[in-house]
């Protein structure tokens, strides 16, 4: 099966007064229809910029996608004209955002915000678009969809808004759905519902999902494959079971030992569930003027001389398991 979404060597930079910020460097991954790929990493590691780059929503200037390709069903989105890209957004590739409180327009009804998209891409009339909006709200299990469609975002709870957001993103049945931390702003109980919903719709519509998250619990529950990002680069990629069972990159190991609950809950052996919670010392380095060598080396407990001088390439460390580390 050919992957629906194929991203190769994507690099996005920001031209700032202080210098060139390499937010995303040479990132590649692919997702099949009906599958979920999780991109994980700390804040500032380039996850969101990667997501926005897929839809070409990076503010330009100062941002610029300098190289790579983003192919949806073989069409490279980065080569499309602006008008063609607009037609692709929402129809080929749609996005849901982190903050359901601010991601919906406060002055337009939910129904109108969904219908607007259907009218635009599927050329439906007013009435038909409205019906589709109600149908989609019903689909995301919002009770009384007729009434809710006439309501404004402020009349809904956070979970309800995120459902509406998902209804909107899936209204035109896009091939790829990019979900940028869709549950971070929600209550834990609502989180599970939203993730289940995304999972159900993914199976039903055969959508390829790119899930951006920093929550390894979410990853374990929903993803098929995992891409680990650090300082703008992909440092590890493997199927979800493999990553948790056998993490290669010290960064991933570190992330997992900061959340021992995940491993113990799934009966995986990556870390000892009874061990004291550990943290990764330090923070993600600023992406301006990164030193040569591995960007993680200053925080890495296993770093050696070679790590600080030469950048490790991504290599197969096990079957279907890529990692970029000299010590793995």
């Amino acid at each position: 099966m050919a992957p629906v979404l194929e991203v190769s060597n994507l690099s996005t930079v920001f031209h700032t007064r202080r210098g060139l910020v390499r937010a995303v460097q040479n990132v590649s991954f692919s997702v099949n229809a009906g599958e979920t790929l999780a991109i994980v990493g700390e804040s500032g590691c380039g996850k969101t910029i990667t997501a926005l780059s897929l839809l070409r929503l990076i503010p330009m200037p100062p941002g610029e996608i300098v190289s790579g390709s983003v192919k949806v069903d073989g069409t490279d989105l980065l080569k499309l004209s602006d008008a063609e890209m607009r037609r692709a957004r929402g129809k080929q590739i749609a996005m849901i955002f982190q903050e359901p409180m601010t991601a919906l327009n406060p002055l337009l009804t939910i129904g109108r915000q969904i219908a607007e998209m259907v009218t635009l891409h599927d050329g439906l009339g007013r009435k038909a678009a409205r019906d589709r909006a109600v149908e989609m709200l019903n689909h995301v299990k919002i009770p009384e969809p007729e009434r809710r469609a006439r309501e404004y975002p402020h009349q809904m709870s956070g979970g309800m808004r995120q459902r509406a957001m998902i209804a909107m993103a899936l209204a035109c049945k896009p091939k790829v759905l990019v979900a940028d931390e869709p549950t971070t702003a929600l209550d834990v109980t609502i989180q599970a519902q939203i993730l289940d919903l995304i999972g159900d719709l993914r199976r039903e519509f055969g959508t390829a999902v790119v899930l951006i998250t920093h929550d390894l619990g979410v990853v374990a529950e929903t993803a098929n494959r995992v891409v680990v990002m650090y300082a703008g680069r992909k440092v590890e990629e493997a199927p979800v079971g493999e990553v948790f069972a056998n993490p290669k990159h010290p960064y991933m190991t570190g992330l997992m030992s900061s959340i021992p609950r995940v491993a113990s809950a799934r009966g995986l052996t990556g870390v000892d569930a009874t061990a004291r919670l550990t943290e990764i010392p330090g923070i993600v380095p600023p992406l301006i003027n990164l030193p040569p060598g591995c960007a993680f080396s200053p925080r890495c407990t296993r770093s050696e001389a070679q790590c600080t001088t030469t950048l490790p390439e991504l290599e197969l460390k096990a079957p279907d398991h890529l990692a970029a580390c000299w010590r793995a």
């Binding site: 929503l57 957004r89 929402g90 749609a94 991601a103 919906l104 607007e116 635009l120 909107m168």
Partner: peptide, 14 residues
Amino acid sequence: RQDYVRTARSKGLS
């Protein structure tokens, strides 16, 4: 700069 403007762009609006 608001999120909902980005959302509107992500929908493919002109």
